[in-house]
Structures are given as C-alpha cells and as structure tokens.
Computed example of a mutant assay.
Amino acid sequence: MRALLFAAAGLVLAGPLAAQEVVRTERAAFRIAPVAQGLEHPWGLAFLPNGWMLVTERPGRVRLVGADGRLSAPLGGLPETVARSQGGMLDIALHPEFAQNGLVYLCQVQAGEGGFSSTLVRARFAESRFEGAETLFAAEPRATTGQHFGCRLAFGPDGMIYMGLGDRGRMDRSQDLADHNGSLLRLTPDGRVPPDNPFVGRTDARPEIWSWGHRNIQGLAVRPGTGQVWLHEHGPQGGDEVNLIKRGANYGWPRVTHGVNYGGGQITPHTALPGMEDPVHVWTPSIAPSGMAFYEGDAFPGWRGNILVGALRSRLLVRLTLEGDRVVAEERIPTFGERIRDVRVGPDGRVYLLTDDSRGAIWRLDPA
C-alpha cells in the first residue's frame, strides 16, 4: 500500500542536505537534520496520523512528504490560488477527527469581485489528491493589495476553527468591525458563525470576528491544557507582538503600537490605551515572527511549556518561557541562517522548521 501510494502521488527522493553540528542552548542540545528539500517557499505544515506530512507552497501547491523525506508531485483537486506578493497557498490544518473523516483545511488567497481575499477551503484528503473541495469563507471586503493576508489556522478545544487575518496593508481596517481584515475569526468546521461569537446580532460588525485590532497575524496556537488562544503578529518597524486572545477584545492596531513607520515617523504616540489589550511580549526591533508552537514533547524536556517562534528577519528560532500568562524569559537560538516560516512539533516530539526560500526545505531538530 505504501509503495502504491508513493507511486500514485509521483513521489521522488529529495536531494541530500548536510546536517549541522551540535547546537547547545540553555536547556537543550540538538542537531539540525534535513527532512526534505526542493520546496518553493513552503508556508504551512500538518502531520498526518501515520507521521507523513502535508506541506503548502506559497505559489499554489500542496505536497505530501513521506516519513523518509520523499516529496510528491503537487496534489490536485483544490481551487485556484492567487500567488501574488505575500499571497498564495498559505496555512494548512487537519480536522480534529481527521483519522475518521479525512478533512483538511487550507487558508489560500483567491480572486473575486473587487480583488483578492484570504479564504478558508475544506477538502477531503484522498492519498494522491484532494476531493470535494469547497470554499467555506472569504474575507470581505476584498482588496487589490498584495500584503498582510495573515492566514494562520488553528482548531480550538471547542471544535471551532480560528483564522488569523492581516490588515491588507491598510491599517484603518483593523479598527473597523465591519471589515474582516485585521481580525482573528472564529468559525464552525463548516464555515458558519458560532452563535456565541461576541458580535453576533450587531449590524455594525462582522459576526465571524473573535478579536480585532491586529496588524498581520503570522503565528497562531492553542496552549495545551488551557484552551487559551495565543497569536503573534508583525509590527511595522518594531513592535512585533505576542498576544493572549480574549473574546471580543481590541488589540489596538494602529491606535496602539510599539513600532514606527518604515523609515521612521510616528504612527501613534500610544503604546497603551484604556479598553485595548496590551501585548504579552514585544520585539523591538522586529524579528518578523512566523510560525508558533507550544512545546509539550519528550525530545526536549527542558522546553516543555515554552513557546517556540520562528523568525524571518532575524533568521533564528526563539524560545519564550512562561510563568502563568507572562513571558519571563527569551532565548534566541541560532539555526542555519535562513528565514524560518513555520514551526511545528511532530508526533515524535521533535521540532520541525520550514525555510522560506525559492529552494526551501523542511528541517528537524534532533536531541543531541
């Protein structure tokens, strides 16, 4: 069966990559091992129950990755993606009952009347392709700008899917409840509005919104054992934020920020305002965080309970130590000097990294 699947999917062996020397950190030592290469701007990663992976490529593809690193040809059956600037085929998440229903969720940019928008797509994984794909939700209003699509996905313990969006390069959108962009959305698994969402019944607000006032959400994760939704978002020049999400809360952008305009110039004099939530952690200067995971595995016991964050601009892995709901320490861990787009913890307890490059790859941190 395994051989037939690989043949059907057109899998080929990824080329060799050199493993790195031992990296020693405050609470762990590891080697960086290659998993797969030959990926064009990989963006999101999901582990299948058998340990294989589904990985998205921003130009509009999804591939299957074998446990031995073999890459499939692009899997068919998905709607057309607009791969423009920062947009394309972005995040991917499995339904909590994937083993029974085979459902996969993708956040991809699609064209529509008025421009492009981040959309939520659901399809059934059928080994060498997807079947029954449908677009469940499209952010409105659309725009022709090519930046700040957000597009991170995560299922909560309540069974709802959370979808993080960016402001599409127009900061005013984040303070407009009639605009999906610049918000964290909460949807049922079939794309409907949960009746307990905070703005249900208001004529001046989109009912899908769970929190608002975000600039560009690039990391999204649920803290194990708590049900808490955490995210991080890009600031402008400075002011990247980690936020603990509260129902219906306003996170301030652009009325509140620790950053300034690119090239200098004040956006707002305020780093805090009444009625707006303060970030749990701020990076100034920016690291351009991307990807986010809570670590609870056995491979690195010293990291349990910590947040792991990739960095595009700073090209490293960041480990945040928590006490309660506060970040009390930060460790910046050098890896291999490439832009890290996503961070995931595998079923084996190891940490997997995606590198954002035209010759991108999947790497694994193995305990040393």
Rank of each mutant, 00 (worst) to 15 (best):
G219H: 04
M276F: 07
A133V: 06
P42I: 01
T203M: 03
R247M: 11
G112C: 08
D176L: 09
A249L: 03
Q228I: 01
R124I: 12
L185F: 08
F30Q: 01
R152F: 12
A329F: 14
R124K: 06
S118M: 10
G66W: 03
L185H: 09
I245S: 08
E97D: 14
P198H: 09
F155S: 14
L48P: 05
F294Q: 09
A133R: 10
R339A: 07
E57T: 03
L177Y: 06
W210K: 04
R124P: 11
R186V: 07
T119D: 15
D240K: 09
G291M: 00
I32N: 05
G112I: 13
S211H: 02
G51K: 01
A143F: 08
P198C: 11
N306D: 13
A311E: 08
A143R: 13
A272G: 13
T321P: 02
G291W: 01
G15T: 01
L103F: 11
L184E: 05
L316W: 02
N181L: 07
W283A: 04
G60V: 06
D366G: 02
G132H: 00
N250L: 11
A368P: 01
R206Q: 03
R313F: 05
W253A: 04
H281T: 04
R332L: 07
G248S: 09
V222S: 01
W363H: 15
L231N: 10
W52D: 12
A36Q: 06
R255Q: 08
A7G: 05
D158C: 02
R124S: 05
A311K: 10
G275D: 00
A18E: 14
T145N: 09
I340W: 02
V327M: 07
P254H: 12
S118R: 09
M171G: 13
G291S: 06
R122C: 10
R313P: 06
S128R: 14
A272E: 15
C151R: 07
Y295L: 04
G77Q: 08
D278R: 14
G337C: 11
P269A: 12
L308I: 10
E241M: 11
I92T: 03
G10N: 11
H232P: 05
L136N: 07
P347G: 08
P367I: 07
G337I: 13
I217V: 14
R124Q: 15
P42A: 04
G219L: 02
T268V: 08
M1W: 12
G164P: 02
P96L: 08
L320D: 00
G238S: 10
C151L: 03
L316T: 04
F300N: 00
G310N: 05
P49Q: 08
F116H: 06
